[in-house]
């Protein structure tokens, strides 16, 4: 394996990215060494074991929307620092760093696009942007996206991925849960469908607001979905281990909290069929 390690070092780039840039990638599910190009073709799902690698906003736009159909809106909207929050780092520095790393201005990208010809209002979160956490910017963009869906008469499709509400905006972040959920009542009144795709991981305030309010709820296989994170639960209950499969998409399906668990490679097709039924 010596030649392989050398090669890895040779192509390592300096910028930290969500997805490995290396030519070869080890599957976190089965340990198989996979050729990057092959993995890309299989939409970052391991062809051997079906493990779903975490991907970012750009990938989901490419995978789910018709080529060239995405028309981004509110892209300039970004976080302010209303509490002048500073822990070990300044909040403004964390935001700046996240913007640089993800190439986007907030943890939620919003716009219009189409899925196999069906026009939709589309939102996608990026876990790479401060853990996909929801602060005022995410809440405001979500609300504007719903407004847009209503004014254009388009169904809403959102890909969620988040560690929860953003701590650095305090109660303002918390209120985004109420703000986004309240706004969805208007989408219902307009009788427009809302489909939410929950990806790994979706927890905390995002799950406990717009991510659980879809007319149809879909999750990717193996996605961790819950309110309290596993670490918090273990700590609170004094447990070493949590039950096998706990808070995974398959378990939520079994308990009746999801409509379906869909392989990423089938996701676009399933969304298109759903939209077909609703429109």
């Amino acid at each position: 394996m010596k030649w392989f390690e050398r090669m890895k070092k040779g192509i390592r780039t300096l910028t930290k990215r969500e997805l490995p840039e290396d030519l070869w990638v080890k599957c976190e599910g089965c340990g198989e060494i996979l050729y990057r190009r092959e993995l890309e073709t299989s939409l970052w799902v391991c062809p051997k074991c079906g493990y779903h690698f975490r991907i970012g906003h750009k990938e989901y736009i490419n995978i789910l929307l018709d080529a060239g159909s995405f028309e981004e809106m509110y892209a300039e909207l970004t976080s302010a620092d209303p509490l002048k929050f500073k822990d070990s780092k300044r909040y403004t520095d964390r935001v700046r760093e996240a913007r640089r790393r993800t190439g986007t201005n907030s943890a939620l990208r919003t716009g219009a696009g189409s899925i196999e010809g069906h026009p939709v209002a589309f939102g996608v979160m990026d876990f790479g942007f401060i853990g996909g956490s929801m602060g005022s910017a995410v809440g405001e963009k979500f609300v504007r996206l719903v407004d847009r869906a209503v004014s254009d008469g388009r169904p809403l499709v959102v890909v969620a991925s988040s560690g929860g509400a953003r701590m650095q905006e305090g109660a303002l972040s918390l209120m985004q849960m109420a703000k986004t959920s309240a706004k969805l009542t208007e989408l219902s009144e307009a009788r427009l469908p809302y489909i939410c795709v929950l990806t790994h991981p979706t927890t905390g305030g995002v799950t406990a607001s717009f991510a659980m309010l879809g007319d149809v709820l879909i999750a990717e296989p193996g996605a961790l979905i819950g309110f309290a994170g596993p670490r918090v639960i273990k700590q609170a209950l004094g447990l070493e281990e949590l039950p096998e499969g706990f808070q995974r998409a398959e378990s939520l399906l079994e308990h009746g909290f999801l409509d379906m668990v869909v392989d990423r490679r089938e996701l676009k097709k399933v969304l298109a069929k759903l939209l077909e039924h609703f429109t």
């Binding site: 109420a178 309110f227 308990h255």
Partner: peptide, 25 residues
């Protein structure tokens, strides 16, 4: 909200989300 195993299995997040939505209308 209680961070328990059964609480999660019975939809803690869904219950809260549903209340936010319901209280708004």
């Amino acid at each position: 909200a209680y961070p328990g195993i059964e609480a999660e299995e019975r939809g803690q997040a869904e219950a809260i989300a549903r209340n936010l939505y319901g209280m708004a209308m």
